[in-house]
Amino acid sequence: MGLKKYISDIFYGVKSLITGMKVTGHYFVRPKEIITQQYPENRESLKMFDRFRGEVVLIHDENNMHKCTGCSACELACPNGSIEIISDKVIDPETGKSTKVIDKFVYHLSMCTFCNLCILSCPTDAIKMAQNFEHSVFDRSELTKVLNKPGSKIMPGIR
């Protein structure tokens, strides 16, 4: 090891240390960039990120209509079996054909790992991930949810 390399090593080392200290010093003097949330206090104003996966919801519009055709692609895609689709066959009064209509979209929140595969597999974009994360309940049975609202119908033109 030559003397020149020895000395240049020292200067390079000092320079890289100062670079590191600049980064932490930058954070230290900018308390506004702190990312910690004071959770229970800021509950009213807390807004989760759009990409946060809290629970699966079935999208309903203002007329209580959803887009689920009951194809059960999500049920097949789910690795944990947390979705069960119970469907009926009804005769369409206009065309006279027998069609599939969902009776219950059952979602077991307790089994869900929020992997997003059901949302990706849905051909009609009927379901999405909501940002609600406060799921604690006193009884396990409350975690089994029926996602379609009572009396809801499929939107016309989806099928």
Partner: peptide, 13 residues
Amino acid sequence: KVCAFFQQRLGPM
């Protein structure tokens, strides 16, 4: 506290 501020945290609150 100093450690927390260096790491963009709040520390004990």
